[in-house]
Design a protein around this nucleic acid. Sequence first.
DNA 1: GCGATCAGCT
DNA 2: CACAGCTGATCGC
Length: 466
Amino acid sequence: MESETLALDLDDNGFPIDSLSSEEEPVDRDSEKVEERGLVIPSAVQNTGSFALDFYAGGTDWSCLISKEKCSGNKGLVQKNLFQAWGIEKPSLIPSRSSISFSPPRKRHCSKRIAEDRSGTERPRICPFYKKIPGTSFAVDAFRYGLIQGCSGYFLTHFHYDHYGGLSKRWSHGPIYCSPLTARLVKMCLSVNPLFICPLELDTEHLIDGVKVTMLEANHCPGAALVHFRLKDGRCYLHTGDFRACKMMQSYALLTSQRINVLYLDTTYCNPKYRFPPKEDVVNFVVRTTRKYLEKQPKTLVVVGSYSIGKEHVYVTISQALGVQIYTDPSRRRILQSFGWPQLCGQLCSSGQTSPLHVLPLSVLRPESLKEYLKKYSPQFTAVLAFRPTGWTYSEATGNHLDLIKPTSKGNITIYGVPYSEHSNYEELREFVKFLRPERIIPTVNVGNAANRDKMQSYFQEWLKT
DNA sequence: GCGATCAGCT
DNA sequence: CACAGCTGATCGC
């Protein structure tokens, strides 16, 4: 192997190996990262087939792994929580005199200007390599990078802002492939030219640019899909987008019939400390708790917090258990109606007075805001019982014991944080990977730091032993 | 005035 | 913190 002239090495998963201790100076390394030089083929790649070669052909810029993907400005590093969680020191920032070729800085007259060493430097948005599907002209959830060289098909896994960001009426870079429900949401909520929106029926093989593409239910938010690619050469790639792995997925024929060569995995909670319960357990707890409060105080207004889409199951279940309608504001109602789910659509009502069950943006689920909100419905309702459903609510102390959850109470306002997650917990990730036994795994979340990636890779290796 | 984007915030 | 946004300010048009 002649590796003398080679600048970068890859680990088993196509990530650049952190080689600060090698002959290279940090400065060189920095510039190497960002220079759009010709293909530099690392030694590690040369013997490992086309996978990493394809990645390199798709772009050699790794700087996206250093800055937070959704952080477009000049903020510092991210993932501090995981540094803490895994007992890792916060790494030093890359030099701010980065040699990235900055796009012309836009002048902003912000009175709260940030520190000088951070000002005036803007990182260009370059599509991270793990959003490109090697051997194809496809990218996944990559709309905020403008035109991606060589990309002629843009996949959208689900309708959450951090995945569709960049889609607007000015989108003109290529067709947007997504599930039919997601397609409806894009049409309703964004002003994208409808000609670009290409709905792909779930569980159906679609031939696109010679690649067989199948969308599969992802058990995340409504419309969310896993994307399965089968290339001409027979290689199979699975991109999970965001998902919550479950037993049902083990019955997908596509996942049992042929080995997955590369799994692009939603690793949001890929740490053993995340042991939150199944969604059903959490929903049952919410219903139990609601019943208890209503018994004590029948004039309780029940509130469920939610982002734009997601968490519907929580309030639909309350609605069914108590036999009450669901109130939410017209804009959210319009979106929920578009799902076409009878259990949901049939229960929506347009007056807050006629329903004791309201769905509000999570930002309202604070004691002061809810107190204000309750005033509008006085004296019909005299207290609020609110639920914030999110995976981050999970605490190790509480663990799986939902009944140990202590609400925050202020007067007649009670707020429960409940660990209802639409991402896989650690165990579910492990089970899914052990079932799938993919040849290679590329994590797509928490990848901003080599130590995080190493930690995750060590989990993967452990799971795939023998 | 309007849509898009960004900093700051939760 | 992050999840997946939201809010308000400030751009271009």
